[in-house]
Amino acid sequence: MVYTIVAHLYAKEGKDVEEQIRGKLVEASAVYLKDAGTISWFVMQDAKDPRAWSIIERYEKESSLEIHIANPYFKTWFEFMKPLLAKEIDIRRSNELE
């Protein structure tokens, strides 16, 4: 069963903030796709609101998330992103239906 996380981010105002987030999310996707147990890790920007972003993370199983969190990049990514966000990250966890 595939374990999926959908994280919604909402940026502070400013084109520079948007560009910083875009760059960091593209970088993060390249890093996290290499983690064992990761099926996909991709990001999207809302079509109407450029301050709204979504991250879709798909893992082979829920325990694969431990590898993701143990990646040294995880903590630096979060610390970089935190001051750029207007609100807390909204994280939804699901098991995909078979």
Score class of each variant (00 low, 15 high):
residue 1 M to S: 07
residue 1 M to L: 07
residue 3 Y to Q: 04
residue 5 I to E: 00
residue 5 I to G: 03
residue 6 V to T: 04
residue 10 Y to C: 09
residue 15 K to Q: 03
residue 16 D to Y: 08
residue 17 V to E: 08
residue 24 K to R: 14
residue 27 E to R: 13
residue 27 E to G: 02
residue 29 S to A: 11
residue 31 V to K: 08
residue 32 Y to M: 15
residue 33 L to M: 12
residue 33 L to W: 11
residue 34 K to A: 02
residue 35 D to G: 00
residue 37 G to I: 11
residue 37 G to D: 09
residue 41 W to V: 03
residue 44 M to T: 15
residue 46 D to M: 04
residue 46 D to V: 10
residue 46 D to C: 07
residue 47 A to G: 05
residue 47 A to T: 10
residue 47 A to F: 04
residue 47 A to V: 10
residue 48 K to V: 04
residue 48 K to A: 14
residue 49 D to K: 13
residue 52 A to Q: 11
residue 52 A to V: 15
residue 55 I to T: 13
residue 55 I to G: 00
residue 56 I to H: 14
residue 58 R to Y: 02
residue 59 Y to A: 03
residue 62 E to Y: 03
residue 62 E to A: 08
residue 63 S to A: 01
residue 64 S to R: 02
residue 67 I to T: 15
residue 71 N to A: 01
residue 73 Y to N: 06
residue 74 F to Y: 13
residue 74 F to L: 01
residue 75 K to E: 06
residue 76 T to E: 14
residue 76 T to P: 03
residue 76 T to C: 00
residue 83 P to I: 09
residue 86 A to T: 10
residue 87 K to L: 06
residue 88 E to A: 14
residue 89 I to R: 14
residue 91 I to H: 10
residue 92 R to M: 10
residue 93 R to T: 09
residue 95 N to G: 10
residue 96 E to F: 11
residue 96 E to P: 02
residue 97 L to I: 11
residue 97 L to W: 03
residue 98 E to P: 02
